[in-house]
Design a binder for these strands. Structure first.
Lengths: 221, 221, 221, 221
DNA sequence: AATGAATGAGTATTCATTCAT
DNA sequence: AATGAATGAATACTCATTCAT
């Protein structure tokens, strides 16, 4: 499963928005831009530094991206696609619908998926989170494509479990919110504390307790 | 209680870092800066726009704040103090220790407190969240003063409830994390959906379900 | 002699251009200005730093001196007066005319006088030298009052010695130039090397050799 | 000889510090900077005026020189090299060692050399003299490279003449100081008076008398 | 496609000077 | 006389963008 998804995404990466293949320089520009944007924030990043890190001339950036903003969007737009990919891909989709027998399996899968995603795309995610508030186009697209789609799908998934007789009393959107909050809280703290050497953070324990907490909270255990 | 706290905070607001009274122009500068920083982000804000909105000459800003960064910190530093104020103030403190008979009261109080805070200081909070990743000094101070203190106090509070025989099986820090995640998730969604006209968001219902979810999740109901 | 001269000069210092007594703050302003101008040069000095060093408010400077340039002139103008003072003061004047029996005594007196002057007024002199090229008024005044008067007086003094039958073949102005060059060269090198610890500079020797060099050069020894 | 030297120097001028060829705009920037710095002094010169006079955009200056100070140094550093060039160049060097039969020839050559130099590089020299006191790096470099090298060479030259039995009684450094003082005095006065229409300045006469004065002063005539 | 010199509008910041207190 | 907040023009410098090569 993951292989399929990732392969699909890799392909995404290899082409620019117009579908054309990226040259090697273009790829280096995008890589540098991701680094610099993540480090300093979009507004505080200079195209000249990006060019320098990419080892290309200043002008070259503007041959590929008409403006600095275009470069940002060229990074962020595919990121959004990738964010929701696991939830809309046909293959994965089917899995979602059928494979999980109990809700805690869903939660566990979501956690693993998000952690993996964070690990792989930390910088891009950072950029996305930082810039969304300042670009209405991005906001709109994020809310429509990502939030809307993903939540709707999760809602349906939850509804399916509810049909089976569990969590009957709560609206499915509320269930989604509560589940996602718990997972995000776990992932967030893990991201901060999980990296420390002196960590008193027992990851497996915290993860399982989080899942149990949600299950109990939803009246499933 | 709230009156006392707010009064104390208002005082904070009325003086600059050095303890001196703010002139009227200085206050206008700070107000404009908060607006502009929140709207465009710190890096994308220009001192000239801040000055214009405040109705002062650009030079006036720099009479009060040596650099643009100083202006940012003059806004953000007291915000941090205020953030943790309810948790460290003597008055409130005593309350925390004694008044709550059951954990759901604590959760309800936290929710109300955070919502109120968010309503009052939305812009400053936005600035704080946006800028923390780019200013190590801010990061450090936030982690040490705000996170550290607040979480420690909450942990103690939780431990007290645990001593009374409830939630015995979980580490108090985990309990805090799970509780805070749920509350933050509720507040966040509420902030986004609560403002819409067409909202299918029944605030009282969602709040109570959130509290019940946490209580159940912790084995308290 | 020196006492008389210095007393007269001290008086100069105590009054501003208009003849009024200086207040203590004004005196501190002038002192600070001399320091700062000498350290950084006039153009690179800021009135705010001068005010700070003087311990007065920024506005206070402009109560006494309408512009920064006025402050400069208030420092430099009396300096020029003082520069030529020894040559025009009645008391000293008489001495010049009568007392010296041979030219080497004149040279020796000049050297001592210039060294003393340099020691006392190094900063003001530095300012004067630095700023003369950029202020035509200063240039004119310097050329007319200082150079003109001093050289003329020296020329007459030399002429008197020539009348006694020495240095007959050279124009007196040439004699003055050659003498002054040698003395200035000596004083300049002494200023640079004389301060070093490791100096291989035998001051008495160099001074006497300089005088002897001039005397021989003029055919007087 | 002079041809060779000058050719070498011209080459120096045509390349920037890094050895790269100057573009035409860069050359115009340097020219304008020399003019403006000489006219108003470094600190009082604005990059905008320099750009305007050079007919380039202000930004263009900073493409070539990272800071205004860099521009200053790019002007002054080669000037120092050129200042000492005649004394260290192999060709000239040999000449120095062998060609002059009597000391007055040396003096005459020095005078001509310095006058020529002054004529050609008056502005740069003015800048150099004005700015040396405020830039320790420049001071150091000047003292080490220029003063040190030149004086040492002159000292050796003088010593050679002394070996031949003349000026035996004086340290060679003292001889150099006295000679240079006289020449500089001559050149300085000449620079001031030599340009006037009404000049009572007989250049040939003054030059020869100066040389004769030095020769007599050193016991050589 | 790629370069990099050139641009000019824009940036944060400084400064001499003013003026109400 | 003295203050110091306020000013606005000027400053050095940056930046996204253009364009001739």
């Amino acid at each position: 499963m993951s292989d399929t998804v990732e392969a699909w995404i890799e392909e995404l990466l290899k082409s620019d928005g117009a579908g054309a293949k990226m040259t090697e320089k273009q790829a280096r520009i995008v890589q540098s831009a991701i680094e610099v944007f993540a480090e300093k924030g979009y507004a505080a990043s200079s195209t000249s530094e990006i060019a320098q890190r990419a080892g290309v001339a200043e002008g070259t950036i503007f041959r590929h991206y008409k403006t600095k903003k275009d470069l940002l969007f060229a990074i962020v737009a595919p990121a959004m696609t990738k964010l929701l990919a696991p939830f809309v891909l046909r293959g994965f989709h089917k899995v979602l619908d059928t494979e999980y027998e109990s809700y805690d399996q869903v939660l566990r899968a979501m956690i693993e998926n998000r952690i993996e995603f964070l690990r792989k795309h930390r910088n891009i995610l950072k950029i996305l989170l930082q810039e969304i508030p300042f670009h209405p186009e991005m906001q709109e697209r994020f809310q429509r494509d990502v939030l809307g789609l993903v939540l709707e799908r999760l809602r349906k998934l939850v509804a399916k479990f509810q049909d089976k007789g569990q969590m009957a009393e709560l609206p499915s959107s509320t269930v989604v919110r509560l589940s996602v909050s718990a997972i995000m809280g776990y992932v967030a703290v893990r991201t901060v504390y999980g990296e420390r050497e002196d960590a008193v953070w027992d990851d497996d324990f915290e993860r399982e307790e989080t899942i149990r907490f949600v299950m109990r909270g939803l009246g499933l255990a």
